[in-house]
Amino acid sequence: MSSSFDKVKSTLPYLGVGLGLRREVAAETFEAGHVIDFLEVIPEQYLCKGGDTRERLNKARASMPLVVHGLNLSLGGASPLDQEYITRLKTFVQFTDAPWFSDHVAFASLGDLYLHELLPVPFCKETIEHMSRRIKMVKEQIEKPFLIENTTYYMSMPGSDMTEPQFLTELLEEADCGLLLDVNNVYVNSVNHGFDPFLFLDQLPLERVVQIHMAGHLAKEDIVLDTHGAPIADPVFDLLRYVLSKATVCGITLERDQNLPPFDEILAELSAIKIITAEAKQAKTSLELEKRP
Protein backbone atom coordinates (compact mmCIF):
# COMPACT_ATOMS: atom_id res chain seq x y z
CA MET A 1 0.00 0.00 0.00
CA SER A 2 1.82 3.10 -1.19
CA SER A 3 -0.50 5.56 0.46
CA SER A 4 -1.13 7.43 3.63
CA PHE A 5 -4.05 5.12 4.29
CA ASP A 6 -1.77 2.35 5.59
CA LYS A 7 -0.77 4.68 8.41
CA VAL A 8 -4.39 5.55 9.04
CA LYS A 9 -5.41 1.89 9.13
CA SER A 10 -2.63 1.04 11.56
CA THR A 11 -4.15 3.47 14.07
CA LEU A 12 -7.64 2.00 13.91
CA PRO A 13 -8.85 -0.21 16.74
CA TYR A 14 -9.91 -3.83 16.26
CA LEU A 15 -13.61 -3.83 17.06
CA GLY A 16 -14.52 -7.48 16.47
CA VAL A 17 -17.86 -8.76 15.19
CA GLY A 18 -20.79 -6.35 15.32
CA LEU A 19 -24.35 -5.89 14.25
CA GLY A 20 -26.23 -3.23 12.30
CA LEU A 21 -28.57 -1.61 14.82
CA ARG A 22 -32.21 -1.83 13.74
CA ARG A 23 -35.18 -0.31 15.55
CA GLU A 24 -37.23 -3.52 15.48
CA VAL A 25 -34.65 -5.51 17.42
CA ALA A 26 -33.01 -2.71 19.41
CA ALA A 27 -34.16 -4.02 22.80
CA GLU A 28 -32.81 -7.54 22.10
CA THR A 29 -29.61 -6.03 20.72
CA PHE A 30 -28.91 -4.08 23.90
CA GLU A 31 -29.72 -7.14 26.03
CA ALA A 32 -27.19 -9.17 24.03
CA GLY A 33 -24.48 -6.53 24.47
CA HIS A 34 -22.12 -9.08 26.03
CA VAL A 35 -21.90 -11.07 22.76
CA ILE A 36 -22.00 -8.18 20.29
CA ASP A 37 -18.67 -6.38 20.01
CA PHE A 38 -19.87 -3.19 18.36
CA LEU A 39 -22.84 -1.64 16.59
CA GLU A 40 -23.07 -0.06 13.18
CA VAL A 41 -25.51 2.85 13.04
CA ILE A 42 -27.03 4.47 9.99
CA PRO A 43 -26.87 8.24 10.55
CA GLU A 44 -29.92 8.98 8.41
CA GLN A 45 -32.05 7.04 10.87
CA TYR A 46 -31.09 9.47 13.65
CA LEU A 47 -30.33 12.84 12.07
CA CYS A 48 -32.98 15.50 12.78
CA LYS A 49 -34.89 13.08 15.00
CA GLY A 50 -35.80 13.15 18.65
CA GLY A 51 -38.06 11.04 20.80
CA ASP A 52 -37.36 7.35 21.15
CA THR A 53 -35.08 7.42 18.09
CA ARG A 54 -32.69 9.76 19.88
CA GLU A 55 -33.07 7.69 23.05
CA ARG A 56 -32.05 4.57 21.13
CA LEU A 57 -28.94 6.27 19.82
CA ASN A 58 -27.98 7.45 23.31
CA LYS A 59 -28.44 3.93 24.62
CA ALA A 60 -26.36 2.47 21.79
CA ARG A 61 -23.61 4.99 22.44
CA ALA A 62 -23.56 4.09 26.11
CA SER A 63 -23.62 0.34 25.40
CA MET A 64 -20.77 -0.38 23.01
CA PRO A 65 -18.47 1.08 20.35
CA LEU A 66 -20.23 2.47 17.28
CA VAL A 67 -19.27 2.82 13.65
CA VAL A 68 -21.21 5.04 11.25
CA HIS A 69 -22.47 3.78 7.92
CA GLY A 70 -24.21 6.37 5.77
CA LEU A 71 -26.51 6.13 2.77
CA ASN A 72 -26.94 9.70 1.68
CA LEU A 73 -23.65 11.07 0.44
CA SER A 74 -24.47 10.07 -3.13
CA LEU A 75 -20.76 10.03 -3.93
CA GLY A 76 -21.41 8.91 -7.49
CA GLY A 77 -24.13 11.48 -8.06
CA ALA A 78 -23.67 14.27 -10.56
CA SER A 79 -25.56 16.74 -8.38
CA PRO A 80 -23.55 18.79 -5.88
CA LEU A 81 -22.80 17.22 -2.50
CA ASP A 82 -25.43 18.04 0.11
CA GLN A 83 -23.58 20.40 2.47
CA GLU A 84 -26.32 20.37 5.07
CA TYR A 85 -26.09 16.62 5.25
CA ILE A 86 -22.30 16.66 5.51
CA THR A 87 -22.41 19.18 8.33
CA ARG A 88 -24.94 17.08 10.22
CA LEU A 89 -22.96 13.93 9.48
CA LYS A 90 -19.82 15.46 10.96
CA THR A 91 -21.65 16.28 14.19
CA PHE A 92 -23.09 12.78 14.24
CA VAL A 93 -19.72 11.07 13.70
CA GLN A 94 -18.23 13.18 16.49
CA PHE A 95 -21.15 12.38 18.81
CA THR A 96 -20.85 8.64 18.26
CA ASP A 97 -17.06 8.74 18.65
CA ALA A 98 -16.87 6.28 15.76
CA PRO A 99 -13.29 5.41 14.74
CA TRP A 100 -14.34 5.52 11.08
CA PHE A 101 -17.36 6.16 8.89
CA SER A 102 -18.45 4.86 5.51
CA ASP A 103 -20.79 5.28 2.56
CA HIS A 104 -21.38 3.64 -0.80
CA VAL A 105 -20.00 3.65 -4.32
CA ALA A 106 -23.35 4.74 -5.70
CA PHE A 107 -25.69 7.62 -6.32
CA ALA A 108 -28.83 8.08 -4.26
CA SER A 109 -30.35 11.31 -5.48
CA LEU A 110 -30.71 13.41 -8.57
CA GLY A 111 -31.13 17.10 -7.87
CA ASP A 112 -33.99 17.43 -5.43
CA LEU A 113 -35.19 13.91 -6.11
CA TYR A 114 -34.25 11.35 -3.49
CA LEU A 115 -34.38 7.84 -4.93
CA HIS A 116 -34.67 5.54 -1.89
CA GLU A 117 -32.09 3.20 -3.42
CA LEU A 118 -28.36 2.98 -3.99
CA LEU A 119 -27.89 3.15 -7.74
CA PRO A 120 -24.84 2.09 -9.73
CA VAL A 121 -22.27 4.28 -11.44
CA PRO A 122 -20.39 3.71 -14.71
CA PHE A 123 -17.03 2.04 -14.12
CA CYS A 124 -14.74 4.44 -15.97
CA LYS A 125 -11.90 6.91 -15.40
CA GLU A 126 -14.23 9.89 -15.45
CA THR A 127 -16.31 8.46 -12.61
CA ILE A 128 -13.12 7.83 -10.65
CA GLU A 129 -12.07 11.47 -11.06
CA HIS A 130 -15.52 12.69 -10.11
CA MET A 131 -15.95 10.40 -7.11
CA SER A 132 -12.43 10.74 -5.75
CA ARG A 133 -12.79 14.53 -5.79
CA ARG A 134 -15.98 14.21 -3.76
CA ILE A 135 -14.50 11.64 -1.38
CA LYS A 136 -11.57 13.95 -0.68
CA MET A 137 -13.97 16.79 0.10
CA VAL A 138 -15.91 14.56 2.50
CA LYS A 139 -12.72 13.32 4.18
CA GLU A 140 -11.49 16.88 4.65
CA GLN A 141 -14.72 18.02 6.21
CA ILE A 142 -15.51 15.09 8.49
CA GLU A 143 -11.90 14.54 9.61
CA LYS A 144 -12.25 10.85 10.37
CA PRO A 145 -11.02 7.82 8.40
CA PHE A 146 -13.46 7.15 5.57
CA LEU A 147 -14.37 3.88 3.84
CA ILE A 148 -16.29 3.29 0.65
CA GLU A 149 -18.43 0.20 0.20
CA ASN A 150 -18.67 -1.86 -2.97
CA THR A 151 -22.34 -2.11 -3.92
CA THR A 152 -24.50 -4.43 -5.97
CA TYR A 153 -25.39 -3.47 -9.53
CA TYR A 154 -28.12 -5.25 -11.42
CA MET A 155 -27.35 -3.62 -14.74
CA SER A 156 -24.09 -2.48 -16.25
CA MET A 157 -24.07 1.25 -16.62
CA PRO A 158 -23.57 2.73 -20.09
CA GLY A 159 -20.13 4.28 -20.33
CA SER A 160 -18.41 1.56 -18.30
CA ASP A 161 -15.08 0.53 -19.79
CA MET A 162 -13.37 -1.02 -16.76
CA THR A 163 -14.02 -4.06 -14.63
CA GLU A 164 -15.34 -3.46 -11.14
CA PRO A 165 -12.06 -4.48 -9.42
CA GLN A 166 -10.07 -2.17 -11.71
CA PHE A 167 -12.52 0.62 -10.95
CA LEU A 168 -12.51 0.07 -7.19
CA THR A 169 -8.74 -0.27 -7.01
CA GLU A 170 -8.12 2.97 -8.88
CA LEU A 171 -10.83 4.79 -6.97
CA LEU A 172 -9.41 3.69 -3.61
CA GLU A 173 -5.93 4.77 -4.63
CA GLU A 174 -7.00 8.07 -6.11
CA ALA A 175 -9.22 8.96 -3.13
CA ASP A 176 -6.82 7.34 -0.66
CA CYS A 177 -9.50 5.90 1.55
CA GLY A 178 -10.40 2.52 3.01
CA LEU A 179 -12.66 -0.21 1.73
CA LEU A 180 -15.74 -1.53 3.44
CA LEU A 181 -15.91 -4.84 1.65
CA ASP A 182 -19.43 -6.20 1.40
CA VAL A 183 -18.78 -9.86 0.78
CA ASN A 184 -22.42 -10.60 0.03
CA ASN A 185 -22.40 -7.89 -2.64
CA VAL A 186 -19.38 -9.53 -4.24
CA TYR A 187 -21.26 -12.82 -4.32
CA VAL A 188 -24.49 -11.27 -5.64
CA ASN A 189 -22.63 -9.44 -8.41
CA SER A 190 -20.66 -12.58 -9.29
CA VAL A 191 -23.88 -14.51 -9.89
CA ASN A 192 -25.66 -11.70 -11.72
CA HIS A 193 -22.70 -10.86 -13.96
CA GLY A 194 -21.09 -14.28 -14.19
CA PHE A 195 -17.63 -13.83 -12.74
CA ASP A 196 -15.52 -15.78 -10.24
CA PRO A 197 -15.83 -14.02 -6.87
CA PHE A 198 -12.50 -15.41 -5.61
CA LEU A 199 -10.67 -14.02 -8.64
CA PHE A 200 -12.52 -10.77 -8.07
CA LEU A 201 -11.20 -10.62 -4.51
CA ASP A 202 -7.69 -11.39 -5.72
CA GLN A 203 -7.82 -8.27 -7.85
CA LEU A 204 -8.80 -5.95 -5.00
CA PRO A 205 -6.35 -4.12 -2.74
CA LEU A 206 -7.43 -6.13 0.29
CA GLU A 207 -4.93 -4.33 2.48
CA ARG A 208 -7.33 -1.39 2.32
CA VAL A 209 -10.20 -3.38 3.82
CA VAL A 210 -11.06 -2.02 7.25
CA GLN A 211 -14.53 -3.46 7.68
CA ILE A 212 -16.52 -6.30 6.17
CA HIS A 213 -20.27 -6.53 5.68
CA MET A 214 -22.04 -9.87 5.83
CA ALA A 215 -25.68 -10.26 4.79
CA GLY A 216 -28.21 -12.49 3.10
CA HIS A 217 -29.71 -12.24 -0.37
CA LEU A 218 -32.71 -13.45 -2.33
CA ALA A 219 -32.21 -15.69 -5.36
CA LYS A 220 -35.00 -15.17 -7.88
CA GLU A 221 -35.47 -16.87 -11.22
CA ASP A 222 -32.92 -14.93 -13.22
CA ILE A 223 -31.39 -12.58 -10.72
CA VAL A 224 -30.05 -12.47 -7.18
CA LEU A 225 -31.18 -9.49 -5.10
CA ASP A 226 -29.26 -7.98 -2.21
CA THR A 227 -32.13 -7.87 0.28
CA HIS A 228 -30.49 -8.22 3.71
CA GLY A 229 -33.58 -10.31 4.38
CA ALA A 230 -32.29 -13.88 4.60
CA PRO A 231 -29.63 -15.88 6.44
CA ILE A 232 -26.09 -15.60 5.10
CA ALA A 233 -25.58 -18.16 2.35
CA ASP A 234 -22.77 -20.72 2.59
CA PRO A 235 -20.84 -19.36 -0.44
CA VAL A 236 -20.74 -15.97 1.27
CA PHE A 237 -19.22 -17.57 4.37
CA ASP A 238 -16.64 -19.19 2.05
CA LEU A 239 -15.77 -15.79 0.62
CA LEU A 240 -15.39 -14.39 4.14
CA ARG A 241 -12.93 -17.19 4.99
CA TYR A 242 -11.01 -16.38 1.84
CA VAL A 243 -10.81 -12.64 2.59
CA LEU A 244 -9.75 -13.23 6.18
CA SER A 245 -7.00 -15.56 5.02
CA LYS A 246 -5.56 -12.69 3.01
CA ALA A 247 -6.41 -9.53 4.91
CA THR A 248 -6.46 -8.11 8.39
CA VAL A 249 -9.64 -6.24 9.13
CA CYS A 250 -10.83 -4.13 12.06
CA GLY A 251 -14.44 -5.22 12.18
CA ILE A 252 -17.10 -7.42 10.60
CA THR A 253 -20.75 -6.42 10.65
CA LEU A 254 -23.86 -8.48 10.13
CA GLU A 255 -26.62 -6.57 8.35
CA ARG A 256 -30.17 -7.80 8.64
CA ASP A 257 -32.91 -5.40 7.54
CA GLN A 258 -35.90 -7.45 6.44
CA ASN A 259 -37.72 -10.66 7.40
CA LEU A 260 -36.21 -10.36 10.82
CA PRO A 261 -35.94 -13.82 12.37
CA PRO A 262 -36.04 -14.64 16.10
CA PHE A 263 -33.07 -12.81 17.60
CA ASP A 264 -31.38 -16.10 18.54
CA GLU A 265 -30.88 -16.74 14.82
CA ILE A 266 -29.14 -13.40 14.43
CA LEU A 267 -26.91 -14.23 17.39
CA ALA A 268 -26.16 -17.63 15.88
CA GLU A 269 -24.97 -15.94 12.67
CA LEU A 270 -22.78 -13.58 14.67
CA SER A 271 -21.36 -16.59 16.45
CA ALA A 272 -20.64 -18.32 13.13
CA ILE A 273 -18.77 -15.22 11.94
CA LYS A 274 -16.81 -15.12 15.20
CA ILE A 275 -15.75 -18.76 14.75
CA ILE A 276 -14.54 -18.05 11.20
CA THR A 277 -12.68 -14.98 12.46
CA ALA A 278 -11.02 -16.98 15.23
CA GLU A 279 -10.05 -19.77 12.80
CA ALA A 280 -8.53 -17.25 10.42
CA LYS A 281 -6.56 -15.68 13.24
CA GLN A 282 -5.40 -19.11 14.38
CA ALA A 283 -4.33 -20.05 10.86
CA LYS A 284 -2.36 -16.82 10.48
CA THR A 285 -0.63 -17.34 13.82
CA SER A 286 0.35 -20.91 12.86
CA LEU A 287 1.68 -19.67 9.54
CA GLU A 288 3.76 -16.99 11.22
CA LEU A 289 5.16 -19.52 13.69
CA GLU A 290 6.10 -21.83 10.82
CA LYS A 291 7.86 -18.98 9.05
CA ARG A 292 10.01 -18.18 12.09
CA PRO A 293 13.57 -19.50 11.83
Binding site: L110, P122, E126, M157
Partner: peptide, 10 residues
Amino acid sequence: MSDRLHDLEK
Protein backbone atom coordinates in the same frame (compact mmCIF):
# COMPACT_ATOMS: atom_id res chain seq x y z
CA MET B 1 -17.66 14.44 -16.53
CA SER B 2 -20.38 15.90 -14.40
CA ASP B 3 -22.44 16.90 -17.47
CA ARG B 4 -22.17 13.46 -19.03
CA LEU B 5 -22.78 11.73 -15.72
CA HIS B 6 -25.69 14.04 -15.02
CA ASP B 7 -27.23 13.29 -18.43
CA LEU B 8 -26.84 9.56 -17.88
CA GLU B 9 -28.25 9.59 -14.36
CA LYS B 10 -31.13 11.81 -15.48
